[in-house]
Amino acid sequence: MKLMKGGKGMNMTIIQMEVFVKIVETKSFTKAGEDLGMTQSAVSHAISSLESAMGFQLIIRNRSGAVITTNGEKMLAHIRNILRHTELMKQDAKSIMGLQKGKVRVGSFESVMINWMPDIIGQFQQQFPDIEVELIEGDYQDIIQWLLDGRLDLGFILETERMNVEFQPLKDDHLSLLIPCDHPLSKEREPSIEQVASYPFIMPKKGCDEQVRRMFKAEDLDPDVRFVIKDVHSIIAMVKSGIGISIMPELTLPKHMDMIKATRICKEVYRTIGIAAPAFKRLSPAAGKFFELTKALVGNT
Results as ranks from 00 to 15, higher is better:
residue 47 I to M: 12
residue 42 A to S: 14
residue 17 M to Q: 06
residue 98 G to N: 09
residue 114 I to Y: 08
residue 24 V to Y: 00
residue 31 K to P: 08
residue 102 G to L: 07
residue 116 W to G: 06
residue 72 G to Y: 15
residue 74 K to D: 07
residue 44 S to R: 04
residue 67 V to A: 12
residue 79 I to L: 11
residue 137 E to W: 08
residue 93 A to H: 08
residue 50 L to W: 02
residue 38 M to N: 01
residue 58 L to R: 07
residue 118 P to F: 10
residue 55 G to T: 10
residue 88 L to H: 04
residue 25 E to G: 01
residue 48 S to Y: 00
residue 98 G to Q: 12
residue 85 H to M: 07
residue 130 D to H: 05
residue 138 G to Y: 14
residue 103 K to C: 04
residue 79 I to S: 07
residue 43 V to N: 02
residue 16 Q to N: 07
residue 109 F to R: 11
residue 20 F to C: 00
residue 109 F to S: 10
residue 90 K to C: 03
residue 21 V to E: 08
residue 75 M to A: 15
residue 75 M to K: 10
residue 117 M to H: 09
residue 17 M to T: 03
residue 129 P to F: 02
residue 29 F to M: 15
residue 31 K to W: 10
residue 48 S to I: 00
residue 102 G to Q: 08
residue 95 S to I: 05
residue 30 T to I: 15
residue 101 K to W: 10
residue 20 F to P: 00
residue 133 V to M: 01
residue 73 E to F: 12
residue 75 M to T: 11
residue 31 K to D: 10
residue 84 R to G: 00
residue 117 M to T: 07
residue 36 L to F: 02
residue 45 H to G: 01
residue 124 F to S: 08
residue 49 S to H: 09
residue 37 G to A: 08
residue 63 R to A: 15
residue 16 Q to D: 11
residue 52 S to N: 13
residue 91 Q to H: 00
residue 66 A to I: 13
residue 70 T to G: 08
residue 121 I to S: 04
residue 129 P to R: 00
residue 87 E to K: 03
residue 66 A to Y: 05
residue 79 I to Y: 10
residue 71 N to P: 09
residue 16 Q to G: 10
residue 34 E to I: 14
residue 93 A to Q: 11
residue 39 T to N: 05
residue 116 W to H: 07
residue 136 I to N: 03
residue 141 Q to S: 14
residue 25 E to M: 03
residue 122 G to Q: 04
residue 111 S to D: 13
residue 68 I to M: 13
residue 63 R to C: 08
residue 143 I to L: 13
residue 72 G to D: 14
residue 63 R to D: 15
residue 40 Q to A: 02
residue 76 L to Q: 05
residue 104 V to L: 07
residue 127 Q to I: 04
residue 105 R to M: 14
residue 118 P to K: 06
residue 106 V to A: 06
residue 86 T to C: 00
residue 126 Q to T: 02
residue 59 I to C: 11
residue 51 E to H: 04
residue 32 A to L: 14
residue 95 S to Y: 00
residue 45 H to M: 11
residue 77 A to P: 11
residue 25 E to T: 01
residue 73 E to S: 09
residue 97 M to G: 05
residue 110 E to M: 12
residue 116 W to D: 07
residue 121 I to Y: 09
residue 97 M to L: 12
residue 45 H to Q: 11
residue 28 S to N: 06
residue 107 G to P: 14
residue 74 K to A: 09
residue 57 Q to E: 15
residue 142 D to G: 09
residue 64 S to G: 11
residue 54 M to A: 01
residue 67 V to D: 13
residue 90 K to I: 07
residue 79 I to H: 08
residue 85 H to R: 07
residue 75 M to S: 12
residue 15 I to S: 11
residue 32 A to R: 12
residue 33 G to N: 10
residue 124 F to L: 10
residue 48 S to C: 01
residue 15 I to K: 11
residue 144 I to L: 01
residue 116 W to T: 06
residue 112 V to A: 06
residue 73 E to D: 14
residue 96 I to F: 06
residue 135 L to D: 02
residue 128 F to G: 03
residue 135 L to C: 06
residue 131 I to R: 03
residue 26 T to P: 02
residue 133 V to H: 01
residue 54 M to Y: 02
residue 58 L to E: 13
residue 81 N to L: 09
residue 71 N to H: 12
residue 129 P to T: 00
residue 30 T to L: 13
residue 16 Q to R: 08
residue 79 I to N: 06
residue 119 D to S: 05
residue 40 Q to C: 02
residue 110 E to H: 14
residue 89 M to P: 00
residue 123 Q to V: 04
residue 137 E to V: 14
residue 57 Q to C: 09
residue 77 A to N: 13
